[in-house]
Amino acid sequence: MKRVWSGLLLGIGALPAVAATCEQSSRQGDVQGKFDANGEVCFSLPELGENYVSATLNGVTDARLLDGQNRRIRTLIENGPADGEHTLLFALPVKQNTSLVLHGEAGKPWRFQWRMKETSPLPRVQMLAPVSPTLKALANVISAGGSTEAFWQAQRRQGTPMVEPVDANHKRVTFLWRGARDNVFILGSPAGDHDPLFRLGNSDVWFRSYVVPADTVMQYKLGR
């Protein structure tokens, strides 16, 4: 069986598309069936705040995300193998009606497994002080004339992003970059956007924190 991984997908297009009559979906599910005579099946997706969706599709050759007027927002799969399994991670437009249209071979089986999570990003404006307890302590060290070297050594041992507990159901994830002079961005952030990192004082530490569900798994990239 062929496997295809697609990372966080964002953006909007203006190409028109027509959706079939759609089935209502919840925030999590596992459904299967057979494609109709047109080789199509459609799901209405719930309206969410800032979010991400993880999904696995089987038997699907094409997948499109449509808005409330059946206009294509983005293409998730195009000309995929009919016997393939596709793992997707993407964000839905915030607080908008959307639908997911799947295509495959008429009469052939399909399967759709998914889970939707809302995220709680910190404000997009630059913070005067970090919220992370670890970074708060580091800020005190820096203000007293100390070095960031011990902090970076700890991050090398533990791995990044830095994860701290918030409560039983959430964690604070802090993305880090060392030594930039100018802007650093996280591409494919939990907020579903390309967000800037912030510099901790005049140090070599750049950071951005998000509070997310404790079982969050995602792909991301950092760039300048």
Rank of each mutant, 00 (worst) to 15 (best):
T98V: 11
G107E: 00
M116R: 06
M116Q: 13
A137E: 13
N140Q: 15
A154I: 06
N169K: 13
G146M: 09
E149P: 04
A154T: 12
T174G: 00
P93E: 05
Q126R: 15
L176I: 04
G159F: 10
A137D: 11
A129S: 14
V163Q: 02
K108P: 00
M162W: 07
Q126P: 12
W152P: 04
G104P: 01
M127V: 11
V141N: 06
G159C: 10
K136D: 07
P165L: 06
L176M: 08
I142H: 05
V163N: 02
L100M: 12
V101P: 01
L89M: 15
P161D: 03
L176H: 04
R157Y: 03
G107L: 05
L92Y: 06
L122M: 15
R156Q: 13
E164R: 02
M116T: 08
P161C: 05
R172V: 02
L100H: 04
Q126E: 15
V131T: 13
P165K: 05
L92I: 12
R124H: 14
M162Q: 07
M127F: 11
S132E: 06
K117I: 10
E105N: 07
R156A: 14
P165C: 03
G159K: 09
L92N: 03
Q113C: 00
S132P: 09
V131F: 14
T119P: 03
R156T: 12
R172Q: 12
G145I: 06
L128E: 15
D167S: 06
P161W: 03
A137I: 12
A106W: 01
A137G: 07
P130D: 02
L88F: 03
V131D: 11
